[in-house]
Design a protein around this nucleic acid. Sequence first.
DNA 1: GTCTATATTGCGATAGAC
DNA 2: GTCTATCGCAATATAGAC
Lengths: 173, 173
Amino acid sequence: MARNSTDTKEKLLDAFEILLDEHGTSGATLDAVAAKAGVSKGGLLYHFGSKAELIKGSLERLSRLVDDDVESMKSAGDRLHLYYLETSAEVGTPLDRSLIAANCLSQENADAKNALRKTREAWFDVLNDHLGDPDMAMTIQLIGDGMYFNQNFGLSQDEALAHVKNVLARLGL
Amino acid sequence: MARNSTDTKEKLLDAFEILLDEHGTSGATLDAVAAKAGVSKGGLLYHFGSKAELIKGSLERLSRLVDDDVESMKSAGDRLHLYYLETSAEVGTPLDRSLIAANCLSQENADAKNALRKTREAWFDVLNDHLGDPDMAMTIQLIGDGMYFNQNFGLSQDEALAHVKNVLARLGL
DNA sequence: GTCTATATTGCGATAGAC
DNA sequence: GTCTATCGCAATATAGAC
C-alpha cells in the first residue's frame, strides 16, 4: 500500500507507460492500468480524474525527465554527442519508457506531439552548442532518432551504434 | 460507384490508411473507414470480413509498394543512397502513407512490426550492395529512419536533408 | 483514499432485406 | 455488392458505501 498520494500516482503513471509500450494505446485502458498498479479503477480515478489527466501526468513527468537528461548530457563534456547516441540506443530506462509512451500517444494526441517536438528541440540545441556545427548536430540527432525508432520493432541497437561510431571516426568525431 | 471489387477494396484501404495517419488506431474505426470510403459498414465487411483482414490487406499492399520502391532505388544508379534519403523525407506518397499506417498498427500488432522489420532489411540490403560499406549503409538507413520518424510530428525534412547532404559530402558521398 | 456497482457510449460483428 | 438494424461487449466515467 502506498504511503502517500505521490507514490500511488507514480505507480499509476508507471503502469500506464508500461502498458502503452507493450500493448499500444488500445491496451492501456483504465481497467488495465489500475490492475497493473494494484488498485481499483475507482482508486485510479481518484488520483487522475480522467484518462486525459493520466496522459497529462505522463507528459509532465516526461518533461522533467528530459530536463534531467539535458543536464546529464552537459556533464558528458567532449563525449556529449557520443553520450547522446549511446543513450538513444538504451532500452528500459524511465526516460526511454516515457518517450515510447509519448510516441504511442502522439499518434492521436496533439499535446504528446508537442512534447516530443519540444524534446527534440532541446536536444538539438545542446548538440549544436557542443559541436558548433548544425550539419553534424542535425545528422547525429537524426541517427539517434533512427535508433530510437528501431527499438519499436525489437531491433538491437548495439550493432547499429558500432557502425555509426565507425562513420563518426572518419569525420574526426 | 466502384466498377468492380478491386476498386472498392483499394478505396477502403486508402480510407483506412488515411484515418490511421491522421487520427491513429483509435480513429480508424470500421464506421469511420466505411464513411470515408463512401460505403456502409456492411459494405466494408463484405470486402474485408473483419478488422484483422483490413489490417492484413493494408500490410500486403505495403509489401507490394516496397517491392516497387526497391526496384526504383536500383534504377537510381550512383545516386541510390541520395534517392533513398530524398524519398525518406517525402510526404504524401502511397508508400509513405502505407508506411505511416503500418507504424501506427505496429504499436499493437505483431504482423505490422514484422512487415516493417522486413522492409528495413530489404532497404539495408540494397544500400549495402550499392555502397559496399555496412557502416555507411547502416548510418544512412538510420538517418532515413530519423527523417521518417520526424514526419510524425509535422517537422519539415527539407532542411534536415540539406544538413545531411553537407555531411555526406565530407564523406565523399 | 480506496472500493463496488452501474450508467452510458461506441465499437466490431452478424443477420437478413434489396 | 451494398444496405439497415441489431446484438454483445468493452471502455470511460459517475455515485455512493466504507
